[in-house]
Design a protein around this nucleic acid. Structure first.
Lengths: 145, 145
DNA sequence: GTGCCAGATGAAAACCATTTTCACTTACTG
DNA sequence: CAGTAAGTGAAAATGGTTTTCATCTGGCAC
């Protein structure tokens, strides 16, 4: 946390109570949060913080690579704290939103094959798994048709 | 094409000139198109067609599994004709938007491993590659810094 | 500590893709 | 060919995100 704040100052970004609060909320959550979710939680402790400030802080955190974006639905983004440092992907619970990181996507082989076969120079890939986490699997039993 | 129109009627959807036009535009394009793109192209031939109608037709086509959705950016969706019938993914040119389909993602292994290690019941995955297609790689040489 | 000022903030308005509403039209069925 | 359920376009509503702008403040210089 202190390290993050130092990194902020180092890049010329000021450390404000609002930014601390946003960062705290993201760090305290083990799932992903939309900007709106974050705003709501920040306001519980610090009423009056603007949604705009949340968006601006998220932009900075994303630019610094401290948070990751996931795509639980089309219409909006959602963010979570970046936990592993290396290249990794997410497994997202479709019911509660909990996120598990995993590394070792082993797509390099496939990437090379695609390069060879299509002539594309590949710049990156988007990979996410969705499923139901153990505790949501239990819950769901009751209202499954 | 005739087969698609028949499938439409079979499901109780009427075949209208507007729907034909939308379908034609998608079939004639070998990249992905946003609803707005499709609307523009449809209007070149059939002015007066509403953007709403394009959205509605896309909903039907997606529901019937005749088109796929890709995610070239966060803010909007983009569609393309579904070419292979089986499970497949897309390699998208970041410059011109051309899309190449590929099958054989070989993520079953990884999926099983994740199931075992996390206890999630996995429902699906999202995989897209982005890169630059051969002709865009040439073009880009001139204005690369 | 005090003052300065670039950078940060919040409110409100703008944006823009998408969806809804509604009065009108039309493709299919009988 | 008529009846009707389904489809259409215009306009308004929605909702997430971004911009604008007047005001405020964190961190540096003194």
């Amino acid at each position: 946390m202190q390290r993050v704040l130092a990194a902020f100052r180092q890049r010329g970004y000021k450390v404000t109570p609002q930014r601390r609060a946003v960062l705290q909320v993201i760090a305290d959550c083990d799932g992903h949060l939309t900007p709106g979710d974050i705003h709501k939680r920040v306001c519980e402790e610090h009423p009056g913080v603007g949604l705009v400030t949340v968006y601006r802080t998220l932009d900075i955190l994303a630019e610094m690579g401290l948070i990751c974006e996931v795509h639980p639905d089309d219409r909006r983004r959602s963010y979570l704290l970046r936990r592993p440092d290396e290249h990794h992907h997410h497994l997202i619970c479709s019911t509660c939103g909990r996120v598990v990181d995993f590394t070792g996507c082993q797509l390099e082989e496939l990437e090379k094959k695609l390069c060879r076969e299509t002539g594309f120079s590949i710049e990156g890939h988007l990979l996410e798994f969705v499923g139901r986490c153990p505790s949501c699997q239990e819950k769901v039993t009751y209202w499954a048709s």
